[in-house]
């Protein structure tokens, strides 16, 4: 079998989903770290500097292309797998096992992923799109003040709620995803599987929690300021 064959079997495809998933996890950590600076009590100075650094750095721009590629591959491959898998049992069961033998979120990765995707589109539209659009197409462009942008965006309660839902989806996605990617790479051996599961769970809760606190914080801040 050549490389192409290896990546086109069911395990091969899964390896791509797992690898890109892991890459996305790393992205999440960095993203979370940078964004956490909004909590710095300096009216967003630290955060704006960091964001400007990330925005203006050519290396980061290149990595970003990789990030988009990863998203693209992750989404396409996983949704394709999910849709193929859904066709393996044309005649379904009258009585289903439900949650007796597996976790609902493990069975709903496609749905959770799609929710994340919808959220992502909104998220890009809010923050990444305008800024990057300007960077490339507006000669008068100057890095947005993301801090102010956030204050502005999260003033709307419904936006905050949508973001929170996005974080919840991410949480469930990662509840399965982190441990699952380790299994995909064959690391969930007898000795490590327990550890992997716990670390995965902690990660799946911690990161989305951090993310979720940001819109809430910004919302509170902006409503305070309005008063």
């Amino acid at each position: 079998m050549n490389w192409k064959d290896y990546f086109s079997t069911s395990i091969g495809k899964k390896i791509l989903v797992g690898a890109t998933g892991l890459f996305l996890i790393i992205f999440l950590v960095v993203h979370c770290y940078v964004n956490a600076m909004v909590f710095w009590p300096d009216n967003g100075k630290h955060f704006t500097d960091a964001a400007a650094f990330m925005g203006g750095n050519a290396a980061i721009r290149i990595v970003e292309i990789g990030l988009f590629a990863a998203f693209f591959i992750h989404i396409i491959q996983s949704l394709m797998l999910a849709s193929q898998n859904a066709k393996r049992r044309s005649e379904g069961y009258a009585v289903k096992a439900g949650n007796k033998t597996s976790k609902w979120y493990s069975r709903s990765m496609g749905l959770l992923g799609t929710l994340i995707l919808l959220f992502l589109i909104l998220h890009l539209y809010h923050f990444w799109g305008p800024n990057r659009y300007g960077q490339f197409f507006d000669p008068t462009w100057k890095e947005d003040n993301l801090y102010n942008n956030m204050l502005f965006t999260f003033k709307e309660l419904w936006v905050v709620i949508v973001y929170l839902l996005g974080c919840v989806s991410l949480c469930w996605h990662l509840m399965h995803g982190v441990a699952s990617s380790m299994q995909t790479f064959g690391l969930a051996t007898h000795r490590y599987k327990g550890m992997i599961k716990s670390v995965g769970m902690i990660f799946a809760i911690l990161i989305p929690l951090m993310f979720a606190s940001m819109p809430v914080y910004m919302h509170c801040l902006s409503t305070c300021m309005a008063h």
């Binding site: 079997t9 395990i11 898998n85 995909t184 064959g186």
Partner: peptide, 29 residues
Amino acid sequence: GSCTNIGACEAECPKGISLENIARLNREY
């Protein structure tokens, strides 16, 4: 279908075949 690590197989296997075997297959692959 392909394996998405759901784990219902292990829960239902009458012989207690463990998911560790799937991890091993992935490693072998």
